[in-house]
Simulated assay, not measured.
Amino acid sequence: VFPKGTTFYDRSEEGATPERYSSVVERLRKELRTRRYAYLTERSYVQWVERFLSYRGGNEKSELRPEAVKEFLGYLAVERKVAAGTLNLALNALAFFFGKVLRVPLGELGRFSRSKKPKRLPVVLSRDEATRVLRELRGTCSLLAALLYGSGLRLMESVRLRVKDLDFDRSQILVRDGKGRKDRTTVLPEKLRPLLNNHLKTVKAMHEEDLRRGFGEAPFWPALARKYPHAPKEWMWQYVFPAGRLSVDPRSGAVLRHHFNQNALQKAVKTAAGKARVAKPVTCHTLRHSFATHLL
């Protein structure tokens, strides 16, 4: 039950995080980076903690107590009506914040300990539908989507591929730091070999131009960069699908060439499904599910 007339602020853009908590948010970022969490995970966790701290404008004395987490989750479930997966993400972020940063375990949160996601069958395309969708794609998105369908890669696994991860001799792809931080190998489709070879020639020319201009570094792990200072500029460590332009790394501040924007691929696949008149909710992950099904 929420007090009548209460105004909630659980988005950082709606109500700024109280200034007195800026240092604790920085501690959160430092802890995430120390434990080598992915940048997208760091951004998501920080956003959820900021929303929690901005909740009710930061006026509650109990806001940094575990009891406030239960109230916040209740607000998300009842007022915001968020999905179970979103609720779990918020809980994971706050559990990390309280347990690893504040050193205050959340303890038992009752029904908010974990929300169960409804079990749903994955959307799978027929071979004809998959072909029609792929035909509507162009450029880098076309090759990436073909890899998702032909190799069963996840979205982020595909855009994070490095040149060294493609083994043409064995016709396989090495997936580093996949889901659960596990490595695995998958098939490199024979039909994509010539396309990938031509693509890599273009990418290498881009990399050589970056080097000529004094750039040429790809995002790299800080510990490895200290041990192998020249590695970030080496060809084998470059992304197979690099971004079209250089950008500033949000963590280090260095000018790097990041990987292709995953959101652009997601939008392209969705648009292609519409043009192909596939009456199913098609996403990048749909291509992965279709790969697994068509192997049976």
Rank of each mutant, 00 (worst) to 15 (best):
Leu166Asn: 05
Leu166Pro: 00
Asp169Pro: 00
Arg170His: 15
Gln172Tyr: 10
Ile173Lys: 08
Arg176Gln: 06
Arg176Pro: 00
Lys179Met: 09
Lys182Tyr: 05
Lys182Arg: 15
Thr186Glu: 01
Thr186Gln: 01
Pro189Lys: 03
Arg193Gly: 05
Arg193His: 07
Leu195Gly: 00
Leu196Asn: 03
Asn197Pro: 00
Asn197Gly: 07
Asn197Ser: 08
Asn197Ala: 12
Asn198Leu: 01
His199Arg: 07
His199Asn: 08
Leu200Thr: 04
Lys201Met: 09
Thr202Tyr: 02
Thr202Phe: 06
Ala205Met: 08
His207Trp: 15
Glu209Tyr: 09
Glu209Lys: 15
Asp210Gln: 07
Asp210Lys: 03
Asp210Leu: 02
Arg213Asn: 07
Arg213Leu: 14
Phe215Cys: 03
Phe215Ala: 08
Pro222Ala: 00
Pro222Gln: 07
Pro222Asp: 10
Ala223Glu: 12
Leu224Phe: 07
Ala225Glu: 01
Arg226Tyr: 03
Arg226Glu: 13
Lys227Leu: 11
Lys227Phe: 05
Pro229Asp: 10
His230Ile: 03
Ala231Trp: 03
Lys233His: 08
Glu234Gln: 15
Glu234Phe: 08
Glu234Met: 15
Trp235Cys: 09
Met236Pro: 00
Met236Ala: 12
Trp237Pro: 02
Tyr239Lys: 02
Val240Asn: 13
Val240Glu: 04
Phe241Pro: 09
Pro242Gln: 13
Leu246Asn: 03
Ser247Thr: 15
Ser247Tyr: 05
Val248Trp: 11
Val248Leu: 13
Pro250Cys: 11
Pro250Asn: 02
Pro250Trp: 02
Pro250Thr: 02
Pro250His: 15
Arg251Asp: 10
Ser252Lys: 14
Ser252Ala: 10
Gly253Gln: 12
Gly253Trp: 14
Gly253Tyr: 14
Ala254Met: 12
Arg257Asn: 07
His258Lys: 09
Phe260Arg: 13
Asn261Pro: 03
Asn261His: 13
Asn261Asp: 15
Asn263Ser: 05
Asn263Gln: 12
Ala268Glu: 09
